[in-house]
Amino acid sequence: MAITTIDPKTALVVIDLQNGITAMPGAPVPTPDVIKNSVELAQAFRERGLPVVLVNVTFAEDGADALPGRTDQQRPAGQMPAGWDAVIADLEGHASDIRVTKRNWSAFYGTNLDLHLRRRGVTQIVLTGIATSIGVESTARFAHEHGYHVTIATDAVTDSNAEAHLNSVERIFPRLAENGTTAEILAALPAAG
């Protein structure tokens, strides 16, 4: 499906484009392409006075606020390298950007993202970032459940697992969102004022 419209009150929400995560290879969309497309969208949103939300994930050094619960997959042990949770330099330096720090997969759970969006009258979000099947999909699900129109920039999301990425893009996102390329989203944005 194609993008039908971009609401006048739309926010760009960039998921986990931070040093430690962008250092990993992306599949099938290369991580440098995700960064380039996310930066291009962020610039276009800023030019139009539309909100840009930069989301990062982090945990306390002692791991006290890490996700609880038993899982089959072991979580990384030990401390993360210094600066792993800092938003990449390509997106930094814009005082108007909204910053949200999460400690879960979704940018909505346990954060003030919904409050930031509702107070600005936002009715739609465009999502970019890493990982498609984790942070991006979780945020898309919560956004949909909160009543936002959701658009996924399919060439501005990637995963460490191509099969997981494709499952999200082909099976999950069509039920939660409209999907399109960066170029299609840019073409649908209201004119810069």
Rank of each mutant, 00 (worst) to 15 (best):
S38Y: 00
P25E: 14
H165F: 07
Y148C: 07
N19V: 03
A42D: 02
A95E: 15
G26M: 03
P190I: 06
D65S: 10
V13T: 05
N19T: 10
H146N: 05
L166P: 00
N179D: 09
N161P: 04
A156E: 05
V29Y: 04
Q79K: 12
A191E: 15
R99F: 01
M1D: 11
G83R: 09
I3E: 06
S138W: 00
D72F: 15
D72S: 12
R118Q: 14
L91R: 06
I130Y: 11
L117E: 05
S106I: 03
V13M: 06
F142I: 10
E47C: 12
D72I: 12
Q124L: 11
E137P: 04
R99Y: 02
T154Y: 09
D97Y: 01
V87Y: 04
H165R: 01
S133T: 10
G63M: 01
P8N: 15
G147C: 13
P190F: 00
T4W: 10
P32Q: 09
A89T: 11
D62E: 11
T10R: 13
D159E: 05
I21Y: 12
E184V: 09
D155H: 03
R171P: 04
E184M: 09
V14C: 00
V122E: 10
T58R: 07
N112S: 11
H165N: 08
R120M: 13
G135F: 02
G180E: 10
Q74N: 07
G147D: 12
I130A: 01
R175D: 14
V122L: 14
L54H: 07
E92P: 01
D7P: 05
T58W: 00
L54R: 08
A64C: 05
N37I: 07
V87L: 05
N161Q: 13
P32C: 01
D155L: 01
S160A: 11
I125C: 00
E40L: 09
P32D: 05
G78D: 06
L50D: 10
L117Y: 04
A42L: 03
S138T: 04
N56A: 03
I125A: 03
K9G: 10
A153K: 07
T181G: 03
E178L: 08
E92Q: 15
E92N: 11
W84I: 06
N56P: 07
I172F: 03
L91P: 00
G135M: 02
I35W: 07
S168L: 03
T22S: 05
H116E: 15
V157P: 05
L12A: 09
I152H: 03
K9M: 11
H146S: 04
